[in-house]
Design a protein around this nucleic acid. Structure first.
Length: 870
RNA sequence: GCCGGUGUGGCGGAAUGGCAGACGCGGAGCACUCAAAAUGCUUUGCUCGAAAGGGCGUGUGGGUUCGAGUCCCACCACCGGCACCA
């Protein structure tokens, strides 16, 4: 083996060995660096952004603020490391960067902990905030601590109440009595967005039940179209997944409302359908059994129907949400012995009640077209209802309108022979594809989309239908029957009148918990705070305060604006500051908020736009979803154990943990902590740090005199890194830094030594680059190199273009696409010379053998490919 | 079922249509050491071969191209979201 090694390598072996025994120099000590720099940075306050005269361009970099439920964990460590890279990067690029921090400090965990320990939620919350902010400072996030906010401060939640009142004025906050999601463990209502797909609460994990209650709602459905359409603006700067999830959640369907006359009922029943083209194929109607409509229709029916319906309703209400959503479940239903009239052909169709129709979507009733809708077909086959095909899916959509065979007896088009085998009545498979209309009067021959257009016009003209849209999105239920939240600023008069709390009386502060039982019991604990809840108005009326608190997602729906003027006690935020800084240029957070928080924040931003407080309609111009940190393949949490951030920091140092987070892979990807090496990161940091120890030249040294090859590597790094950062390829930047460190090490050990100018230049570049990821190490290096702190405020250096020009290039010679030889050539070599060189090279000659050349592709100076045949 | 995403060494991952596997982890060997740790150096896709040098190789199958991890078509697998939403 030893024979293969170069003389240089052996010399290096010997030298490093000697150095180590001889020197006993200082060792890299992460804990010591943290202890040294943290207090100094505290004094410097380098990341304040409050100078109104600052003329630099601005960037607003924000990570989703954290819930102070304990100390920081690995998930925070990843998110904050990533966001901090961007904040520090843009600062280096000459931007005035706003990177604030705050605490989403209202909510159930504080309240539950308070109940458990018998203390005020305030104590628990603010103790946690103190602990987390200390950890965050140690973690060296480059934030402006002067702008720190906590949503549980009255100075903050006052403005939640202000926002509520504004929305109330505009009719966007309203009360209604409705079926709501009820969490039986936390004893509070939940928004739809907080119910997981398996029907459990996202907080407590309890199976959510339905309860009929009067609650406060925000009218987010008024904004459904804008929330959906404006997603197009975010295309390319938000993750496709989040855009898809939001679109899905809003769930807009286009179609038509169709009015059906009901026998024995004055008012018509309107149904929503996305397939008005199939109106001729409607053979029955279905209403949701739990709708008011069903109850009313049953009332007007026979005793027998009333009995069977009552039984059915009991059965339906016993069904859990989870069972109900199972599409493979057998269809159930009862005939109501009532009839509707199809407006297009006057046909009399029976009305059924069945739980596959939902009371709170559309109008709670559907026109059933079994031939072209699978659910209707399943129902029709179960209960022996007729199936009529009105769209021939065998016919091509384009081309001449086919001539349809007419049955002379009925005068109707017959099912074409080739369609008969597909008859849904027999196959049980609905025909949902496109084709040509049949059995549909004036629609015959039209394609699906043309028929939809035509029939909608016809219905509209006749006054019994119109184009219509429906949404999956529901209004946002914001009341919570819990203590630790923003009180809703409304008085209830005895006659039921709602009296908004006058703005000048805000904030409506939470009372002391003294004497209050916070134990969840289904009604808000605030209702029992007699002194607080009972108020006499100036006009002498005795009123009661609304005892509920707001969903904490109200707090987080506008907090990014509060950071802009965090101490302003005259308004929620200063619109002038909003003009300057907002919207957020880069938002960073977990994908778990893809719908909840992001949808609400987008909604409130649009409301504030409509109210004239901001001049933009989307709060977050770009979004990055960091992955999760996993341990043993599953998400880490306090209950499940896993890796503890504090322990990791103690073992490897803050810088090594931060570096590990960014080096692990692309930011969006999950990190399996077992797959990465914080010890390896620490080793690299020590290597980088040692470079600064070894530099012996003074800061004034002339770069140009240094090692040329190393200078080229340095300047390639300077040229390449910014693009990589902006593409979020932090891991690649770290890799390039490692290469730069390795190259510098080599020059020190086996080249010009620590006095070389290029060694200083490279080491300074390492410090500047490293300051994005490992602030302590970078700061220490910077000081060692002879500069005052903070390294974070030194600008990025421009690459010297003359050093980027290649002087020699490795040309690759291929035969039939396989590399057979290489040669060092001038970048200016011309095509003919390169071809000659290739054809003459030993590797090419050997590979060619006696094969004959078909073509030679030359792309000077990089590649020659010779295509051959035997 | 619909929508979004991802498939590259033992592992994390890199690669404007032009040398696949940068950088790191892990492994192997060596140096230093009484020894170990730490550190440094060398090496490391699989495979045939003593070597020189071959063959294979980016989920599968096709296609475009002188040339495909990258572009196109059709699949497969996995992850995530939605789903009796008319």
């Amino acid at each position: 083996m030893a024979e293969d090694r170069s003389a240089d390598a052996r010399a290096a072996d010997a030298r490093t060995a000697d150095d180590r025994t001889a020197e006993h120099g200082p060792r890299y000590d992460a804990a010591a660096l943290q202890a040294k720099w943290l207090p100094r940075w505290d004094v410097l306050k380098s990341f304040r952004t409050d100078d109104p005269a600052d003329k630099r361009p601005r960037k607003y970099i924000l990570d989703m603020f954290s819930y102070p439920s304990g100390d920081l964990h690995m998930g925070h460590a990843e998110a904050f490391a990533l966001a901090d890279v961007l904040a520090r990067y843009w600062r280096q690029q000459g931007f005035n960067v706003l990177h604030p921090i705050g605490w989403d400090s209202f909510g159930l965990p504080a309240e539950n902990a308070a109940i458990k320990r018998g203390v005020d939620p305030r104590e628990w919350t603010y103790a946690n905030i103190a602990q987390q902010s200390a950890s965050m400072k140690q973690y060296a996030t480059s934030v402006d601590w002067d702008r720190e906010i906590a949503t549980s401060d009255p100075e903050y939640y006052k403005w939640n109440q202000w926002l509520f009142l504004k929305m109330y004025e505009k009719g966007l906050a309203y009360r209604k009595d409705s079926w709501v999601n009820w969490d039986p463990v936390d004893q509070t209502v939940l928004a739809n967005e907080q119910v997981l797909p398996d029907g459990t609460s996202d907080r407590s994990g309890a199976i959510v039940v339905k309860k009929k209650l009067t609650q406060w709602y925000f009218k987010i459905t008024d904004y459904a179209d804008r929330l959906l359409d404006d997603l197009n603006q975010l295309e390319g700067s938000w993750p496709p997944k989040v855009l898809a999830m939001q679109r899905n959640w809003i769930g807009r369907s286009q179609g038509a409302d169709v009015d059906f006359v009901i026998e024995g009922r004055e008012a018509r029943i309107t149904v929503f359908t996305t397939r008005p083209d199939t109106l001729y194929g409607t053979t029955f109607m279905v209403v949701a059994p739990d709708s008011d409509l069903a109850a009313e229709l049953v009332n007007g029916s026979t005793d027998a129907v009333r009995t069977s319906f009552a039984d059915y309703l009991v059965q339906v209400q016993k069904t859990t949400e989870i069972e109900r959503q199972d599409a493979s479940r057998e269809k159930t239903g009862v005939f109501l012995d009532r009839f509707a009239v199809n407006p297009i052909n006057g046909e009399r169709i029976p009305i059924w009640a069945a739980d596959y129709v939902l009371a709170d979507y559309g109008h709670g009733a559907v026109m059933a077209v079994p031939a072209h809708d699978q659910r209707d077909l399943d129902f029709a086959r179960k209960f022996g209802l007729p199936v009529r095909v009105v769209l021939d899916t065998n016919q091509p959509v384009t081309g001449a309108i086919p001539v349809l065979p007419i049955n002379p007896e009925t005068g109707e088009a017959e099912l074409p022979d080739d369609l008969a085998p597909l008859d849904p009545a027999h196959t049980g498979v609905a025909l949902t594809g496109d084709g040509r209309m049949i059995n549909s009067g004036s629609l015959n021959g039209l394609s699906k989309s043309n028929a939809i257009k035509r029939i909608t016009e016809q219905l509209d003209a006749a006054g019994n239908g119109r184009a219509s849209k429906n949404y999956r999105l529901r209004d946002w239920l914001i009341s919570r029957q819990r203590f630790w939240g923003t009180p809703i600023p409304i008085f209830h008069a005895e006659d039921g009148e709602l009296v908004p709390v006058p703005e000048e009386q805000l904030p409506v502060r939470l009372p002391s918990t003294e004497g209050l039982d916070l134990q969840p019991k289904g009604i808000s604990p605030l209702g029992a705070a007699d002194d607080w809840v009972n108020v006499t108005l100036p006009d002498g009326r005795a009123v009661r305060r609304d005892p509920d608190t707001m969903d904490t997602f109200v707090d987080s729906s506008w907090y990014f604006l509060r950071f802009l003027s965090p101490r302003d006690d005259t308004r929620a935020f200063d619109p002038k500051e909003a003009d300057k800084w907002a919207p957020v240029d880069q938002y960073i957070g977990g994908v778990e908020h893809a719908i909840l928080h992001l949808l609400y924040a987008r909604f409130i931003t649009k409301v504030l736009f409509d109210l004239g407080y901001v001049n933009f309609t989307e709060p977050f111009s770009a979004l990055l979803n960091q992955g999760m940190v996993l341990s043993g393949g599953s998400k880490m949490s306090k209950s499940r154990g896993g890796v503890n951030l504090g322990d990791e920091i103690t073992a490897h140092g803050v810088d090594a943990i931060r570096l590990t987070m960014v080096f692990a892979g692309p930011p969006e990807d999950d990190i399996n902590w077992e797959d990465v090496s914080p010890a390896g990161s620490a080793k690299f940091l020590a290597r980088a740090w040692r470079l600064a120890q070894d530099v012996t030249s003074a800061p004034e040294i002339e770069w140009r005199t240094g090692d040329h090859a190393l200078r080229r590597i340095t300047h390639h790094f300077l040229a390449e890194a910014p693009g990589l950062i902006e593409a979020f390829k932090f891991n690649v930047v770290v890799a390039r830094l490692m290469e730069l460190v390795n190259a510098t090490r080599k020059v020190i050990d086996s080249g010009a030594g620590g006095a070389d100018a290029a060694v200083r230049e490279a080491t300074e570049t390492v410090a500047l680059g490293l300051s994005l990821f490992a602030p302590y190490t970078a700061e220490e290096m910077w000081e060692q190199l002879g500069y005052p702190p903070p390294v974070a405020l030194y600008g990025w250096r421009k690459a010297d273009k003359t050093l980027l020009v290649e002087t020699s290039i490795t040309a690759v010679f291929q035969v039939d696409g396989k590399v057979r030889d290489k040669a060092e050539v001038s970048p200016k070599i011309d095509q003919a010379d390169l071809e000659k060189l290739a054809l003459a090279s030993a590797g090419v000659v050997r590979a060619l053998g006696d094969r004959s050349i078909v073509t030679v592709i030359v792309r000077a100076p990089r590649i020659v490919n010779i295509a051959t045949k035997p």
